[in-house]
Every structure is written in C-alpha cells, then in structure tokens.
C-alpha cells in the first residue's frame, strides 16, 4: 500500500505539491510513483531562477528501468533544487516526501490539484 500524506496535494501524474501558504511550494513524486519506477539512478532538475510554463517537462527522474519526465503543474519559477539528489538519487526511493523532494518553486496559483483522499481513489 502506497503512503499518501494528508498535508499535500497531488497531480494526476503522481507528483505531490506542498503549499507553504506564501506563494512558494515544494514538489516531489509520490510513493506510488517511486515504487513503480524502481531504484532511482539519475535526476536532472531545472536550475534555480528558471521560469517554466505549465505542462513543460522541467525535471527528469531516471530509474534502473526508465526515464520519466516531471511536468510543471503551473507557470512557475524555480527557487531551489534538491542538490542532494545529484549524489543520492535513491533518496527518492527511501524518502520521497521528505529528503527526496525535487524542487521548490514560486507561482501565482497552482490549480486542478487533488487532495489526498481523491488521489488515493485514483490508485485503486
């Protein structure tokens, strides 16, 4: 059974978003996604200050099996990228909601997200 955290919102493409309430957000991939992808071996993140349009591929996570693109959930600007993933991409497997976060960004609004209960239903 995949872990789903109540304090986050979710995309249909299995990313989680944590809203800090000040126009900044943290983003990562869900437990369900990391389990499907398998052992992570490489992560390519956008650079700090990059401006990204909604739905653009702005990160790539690669597991032993496959490369998977992460799409922007909104028009956004990167304020921090998780550099620890350069040397330890496996943090996404061991701690996808905490140490394995991908990027922090700012955005005017992030819409069309699911709450935890709704996301859980999509996994059934």
């Amino acid at each position: 059974m995949s872990e789903i955290r109540e304090d986050r919102q979710y995309t249909q493409t299995h990313e989680w978003i944590l809203d800090h309430g000040d126009g900044t957000y943290t983003m990562g991939i869900t437990d369900h996604a990391q389990a499907l992808l398998g052992d992570m071996v490489f992560v390519e993140l956008s650079n700090v200050d990059d401006e990204v349009s909604i739905e653009d591929e702005f990160c790539v996570v690669e597991s032993v099996k496959v490369a998977s693109s992460v799409h922007a959930p909104a028009d956004l600007q990167i304020i921090k990228a998780n550099e620890a993933l350069d040397d330890e991409p496996e943090l996404i497997n061991s701690s996808c909601y905490d140490d394995g976060w991908l990027v922090k960004f700012k955005s005017h609004s992030v819409d069309d997200l699911m709450d935890a209960a709704t996301y859980a239903q999509t996994l059934d």
């Binding site: 398998g38 052992d39 032993v64 496996e90 497997n93």
Partner: peptide, 8 residues
Amino acid sequence: PLNYGSQI
C-alpha cells in the same frame, strides 16, 4: 520476477 524490492 523483475525484482524482489531493489534491483540494485
């Protein structure tokens, strides 16, 4: 079986 948890 593709793996039993961790392929690595």
